[in-house]
């Protein structure tokens, strides 16, 4: 008799495939630009690669990885393929923190170090996480949690708009708007050292949430009957999404759509359980942001295309296609 495979262990092949693609894409990305670097002939190639391109490439991987993992976890938690890390209000919270820093600009102490914006953004993300825990953390209910996140997102968005409209001068306004568009231009190793440990810790939290997310496949009541602890799951998600998204926004501004698109691209490669999707989504997110950032550098425009804009240009039509496909299925 044919023995059916009843293996519910994760399949590592998607991870290996994506890791291989990253290993191929990273060296190409380091050389890519409007003027391609030839390590043998380009003057100062070693300095450009070591001080500009490598931290930028690695940062793209870190940010994309965090956003991809957060998107997969959010979709698993809300049991909704249209969910996105922005729904928890952590990205808008981090953006508000950064905008406040840019608003005050040089008036702040240590402004010249370049570390203030990420620090303020992390404080903003932390504030959003704390508020989210305070409002929804005790009940463990998903609906209240989501509404709390949307309220925080809306409030932080409104305050950000207020800060832009009341900007002290045109320079501050332009700096804020430009920062909000998201970019990896001129990022350094110090940005990487901020984002890397926080994102790694965030992804670790999201992976710990995997079992609870799997239980939610059958709905909230069945999941609780299987021993899923809703408060623990929420705490892991707040920490995981907060650390990944918060640190991403802190060093690169708002980079949208990665968390929405990537789980969809990767889901067919997995067994569809949310826990199986987190690592492949992290790797695919890393690859997507790396490639998108390289494309931003290559395009022959007057100024470099902002990463956030490039990803939105890819993401919005994808989102539309997703909606149309869902409509067709429902019909």
């Amino acid at each position: 008799m044919l023995l059916h495979r009843l293996d519910a262990r994760p399949d590592f092949r998607p991870n290996l495939l994506l890791a291989l693609l990253i290993a191929l894409a990273l060296p190409v990305s380091l050389l890519a630009g409007r003027v391609w670097i030839d390590p043998a002939t380009t003057p100062n190639a070693a300095v450009i690669l070591a001080q500009l391109r490598l931290p930028r490439g690695l940062l793209a991987l870190v940010i994309g990885g965090g956003l991809g993992a957060a998107g997969a976890a959010m979709q698993g938690y809300l049991r909704n393929p249209l969910a996105d890390p922005g729904l928890f209000g952590i990205a808008p919270g981090a953006a508000l923190g950064a905008v406040i820093c840019l608003w005050f600009g040089a008036a702040l102490p240590f402004a010249s170090t370049g570390l203030l914006v990420p620090i303020f953004a992390l404080i903003g993300a932390g504030g959003a996480m704390a508020l989210l825990s305070l409002i929804a953390g005790r009940t463990g209910g998903i609906a209240l949690f989501t509404l709390a996140g949307m309220m925080i997102a809306s409030l932080a968005g409104a305050l950000t708009s207020l800060a832009i409209s009341l900007a002290p001068n045109a320079f501050a306004m332009s700096e804020i708007v430009s920062w909000l568009m998201g970019a990896l231009t001129d990022r350094s190793w110090s940005d990487l050292w901020i984002a890397l440990p926080l994102t790694a810790a965030g992804i670790a939290c999201l992976r710990l949430a995997g079992t609870g997310l799997d239980a939610l496949i059958l709905g909230e009541a069945a999941a609780r009957s299987m021993g899923m602890n809703p408060q623990r799951l929420q705490a892991l998600l707040i920490a995981g999404v907060g650390l990944t998204v918060g640190s991403g926004v802190a060093v690169a501004g708002i980079v949208g759509f990665v968390g929405l698109i990537v789980p969809h691209l990767v889901r067919p490669l997995t067994d569809q359980r949310p826990s199986s999707l987190i690592m492949p989504s992290a790797l695919a997110g890393a690859l997507l942001v790396l490639v998108a950032d390289s494309v931003c550098r290559i395009l022959p425009l007057v100024t470099e295309l902002r990463l956030g804009i490039a990803l939105s240009l890819i993401g919005a039509p994808f989102f539309l296609w997703l909606l149309l496909r869902m409509r067709r299925r429902m019909a």
Binding site: A215, I217, M226, G227
Partner: peptide, 21 residues
Amino acid sequence: PQAAEIAWDVAVRNLVMLGRM
């Protein structure tokens, strides 16, 4: 539960394996 919804299109074996959680 009544009218249990299955959020993701998992294979039957993985659905049943959730019972071991």
